[in-house]
Computed example of a mutant assay.
Amino acid sequence: MCTGLIIALLPLPANAQGISDQQLSNRTLIGGNVKRHADAVLAVMSYTTVPDVTTSSLSINNGTSGNPGFGQSQLGGGFTISRSFPLYVEGTLAYSRYDPMFVATDGSEQRTLPTRWNTFSSTVGIGWDFRITDELVFRPILNGTIGRVSSDLKIGQSVVNRVTDSNLQFLNNGSLDAYGYGGSLVLDFERYRATYEIDAELRATDIYLRSFGGSSEAVQGSATAQQVSLWARWRAPTGWHALDRPVRYVLEFAYSHYFGDSAGVLGFNDLTSLGVGLELDSSKYPIVITRTRALVRYVFGHNVHGVSFGFAVSF
Results as ranks from 00 to 15, higher is better:
Asp281Val: 11
Leu295Val: 04
Ile287Met: 14
Val276Asp: 02
Asn269Glu: 14
Gly301Arg: 05
Ser273Val: 08
Gly260Lys: 04
Ile287Ala: 13
Ser283Ile: 02
Phe300Pro: 04
Ser283Met: 06
His302Cys: 00
Glu279Met: 13
Ile289Phe: 12
Gly260Phe: 06
Ser283Asn: 09
Phe259Pro: 04
Leu280Ala: 15
Asp281Ile: 10
Val265Pro: 08
Asn303Val: 00
Arg293Lys: 13
Leu280Ser: 11
Ser283Asp: 08
Tyr255Leu: 05
Ser282Lys: 09
Tyr258Phe: 14
Arg293His: 10
Asp261Phe: 06
Leu295Phe: 01
Tyr258Trp: 08
Tyr285Thr: 07
Gly277Pro: 01
Phe300Lys: 08
Leu280Lys: 02
Phe259Ile: 04
Ala263His: 13
Lys284Trp: 07
Thr272Trp: 01
Ala263Phe: 05
Ser273Glu: 12
Tyr285Trp: 14
His257Arg: 15
Ser262Met: 15
Asp270Gly: 06
Leu278Thr: 08
Val265Ser: 07
Tyr298Trp: 13
Ile287Phe: 10
Gly267Asn: 06
Gly264Leu: 09
Tyr258Gly: 00
Val288Lys: 11
Asp261Trp: 07
Gly267Glu: 02
Arg297Leu: 08
Val296Leu: 13
Asn303Thr: 09
Gly275Met: 03
Phe259His: 11
Asn303Gly: 06
Val276Gly: 12
Ala263Arg: 15
Val276Thr: 11
Thr272Pro: 00
Ile289Lys: 04
Ala294Leu: 14
His302Pro: 01
Gly275Ser: 10
Phe268Tyr: 15
Phe300Asn: 11
Val265Gly: 01
Tyr298Met: 04
Asn269Ala: 08
Tyr255Asp: 15
Ala263Met: 06
Ser256Ala: 14
Gly277Val: 02
Gly264Arg: 11
Ser273Thr: 14
Asn269Lys: 15
Arg291Gln: 13
Asn303Arg: 15
Gly277Phe: 00
Leu278Phe: 06
Tyr258Glu: 07
Gly267Asp: 03
Leu266Met: 10
Gly301Val: 01
Tyr298Ile: 05
Asn269Ser: 12
Phe268Asn: 12
His257Val: 12
Leu295Tyr: 04
Leu271Val: 02
Thr290Gly: 07
Arg291Phe: 09
Asp270Met: 00
Phe268Glu: 11
Asp270Ile: 00
Gly301Pro: 07
Val276Trp: 00
Ala263Tyr: 07
Ala294Pro: 02
His257Lys: 13
Tyr255Phe: 12
Leu280Gln: 07
Tyr258Met: 10
Leu271Gly: 03
Leu266Gly: 02
Arg291Trp: 06
Leu278Asn: 03
Asn303Gln: 12
Val276Lys: 00
Phe300Thr: 14
Ser273Gly: 08
Arg291Thr: 14
Asn303Leu: 03
Phe268Arg: 11
Asp270Val: 01
Gly277Asn: 00
Ser273Gln: 11
Val299Asn: 04
Tyr258Val: 02
Val265Ile: 15
Thr290Ser: 14
Gly260Thr: 02
Leu266Asn: 05
Arg293Asn: 13
Pro286Asn: 09
Gly277Leu: 02
Val288Cys: 09
Thr292Asp: 03
Ala294Phe: 12
Lys284Leu: 10
Ala294Glu: 07
Ala263Gly: 08
Val288Ile: 13
Phe259Leu: 15
Ile289Arg: 07
Gly267Ala: 01
Tyr255Trp: 13
Ile287Gln: 11
Pro286Tyr: 09
Gly301Thr: 07
Tyr285Asp: 10
Gly267Ser: 02
Leu280Asp: 04
Ser262Asp: 06
Tyr258Asp: 05
Thr290Cys: 03
Tyr258Asn: 03
Thr292His: 09
